[in-house]
């Protein structure tokens, strides 16, 4: 007895949905960023599943690129978050609503 491929895709969809939910519900800017990472992970799962379905290695190559981009994004994004915290002393996204201090 093995697992059908569609289960993996459904899991990916559920995780992506939870990521979107977190992105909309969370108020802490770092938590929002983490929800973003969750969405990327969900997409990676479906890439690997499709890579298996078509017996093609390129799906896994895409995951590789997604991970690289996520690393770059995390570095820059967290630097921006540190800047925001330095200027506003808050991580609440609703307090960051002015262009000018």
């Amino acid at each position: 007895m093995h697992v059908p491929l569609s289960y993996y895709l459904i899991l990916s969809a559920i995780l992506f949905g939870l990521g979107v939910l977190g992105f909309l519900l969370k108020r802490n800017i770092i938590a929002i960023f983490m929800s973003l990472e969750l969405m990327l992970n969900a997409v990676n799962l479906s890439f690997v599943a499709f890579s298996y379905a078509w017996q093609q290695i390129s799906g896994q190559i895409f995951v590789f690129f997604v991970i690289v981009v996520a690393a770059a994004e995390a570095a820059v994004g967290l630097a921006i978050i540190i800047m925001i915290f330095r200027n506003r002393a808050s991580l609440n996204i609703e307090r960051i609503n002015l262009m000018k201090l």
Binding site: Y8, S51, A70, A71
Partner: peptide
Amino acid sequence: LYLLLGAEFIAAIQIIVYAGAIMVLFVFV
């Protein structure tokens, strides 16, 4: 789950880069 799908390398990379580097950066910040 990646291991179950036969993607060994991606599974290892997932832990090394995502959990071992990116998330450490998050926790650090």
